[in-house]
Amino acid sequence: MGLRRIAFALVVLGIVVWAVFPFAWAIVTSLKAGSALFTVEAWPSQPSLANYAAIFKEQPFGRNILNSLMAASAVVALSLGLAVLAAYALGRVRFRGRGLLLFVVLGVSMFPQVAVLSGLFELVRWLGLYNRIGSLVLSYLIFTLPFTVWVLTTFMRELPKELEEAAMVDGAGPFVIVTRVFLPLMGPALAATGLLAFIAAWNEFLFALTFTLTDDARTVPVAIALMSGASQYELPWGQIMAASVVVTVPLIGLVLLFQRRIVSGLTAGAVKG
């Protein structure tokens, strides 16, 4: 029994190291300045924050973060607003075509994004949004909106029927029921769904890569992917790792903080076979 426990602990330890090591290594790398980068050592002999300073001085990384924040916040707010109403309709009202609609919504979230790229490109250009944050808000809706609709629909379904009926007896119409009875109860659901949608928008790469052109219009993932140094052939790995750490630490913090909520949000709908 003792031996099995030790073996088990080793397996767990192995998984933890496997999961955490790459990020830890990124941190270590980000603290290496100059030629220290090119020696493999577990901890830099002379830790330096030079890379962190550089991404904000030499690169428009502050601006990139702001772009990502604005695009993700706007698309999350928009998605949640649209999704709450839609979720009430899909979750609580019986009507013909409801199953088909849910299927379509799910289908859209499964779309390969490259399949809408040319059509969206045309739309973005037509709306004059090219190289602007607006193009990202518009294109991100394609995955945040179906996701929020889907998850909020499952949450809406769980709300007690009698509560809605009590409100109906009290004279509340559907809009009042959604906004004044259900919405205040959905705080946790909205937070979890919003957070997941935010992360998805924050991490998006393909649309951001395609619809932005200049360095200061880029979002964080594009900036990190395309970050270049003094010469074209020399990637500034120290800076790339510093930038990676900067954008990942808050995400990891949020995810660990909202662990349980996120797990329930991820699995809502998906696993009810």
Partner: peptide, 20 residues
């Protein structure tokens, strides 16, 4: 007529109080 216009009031089994 909708429930609210019938001059009725209802007490539910689960009370159905608005939790917030």
């Amino acid at each position: 007529r909708p429930p609210a216009a019938r001059g009725i009031a209802m007490v539910f089994q689960s009370y159905a109080l608005y939790p917030h």
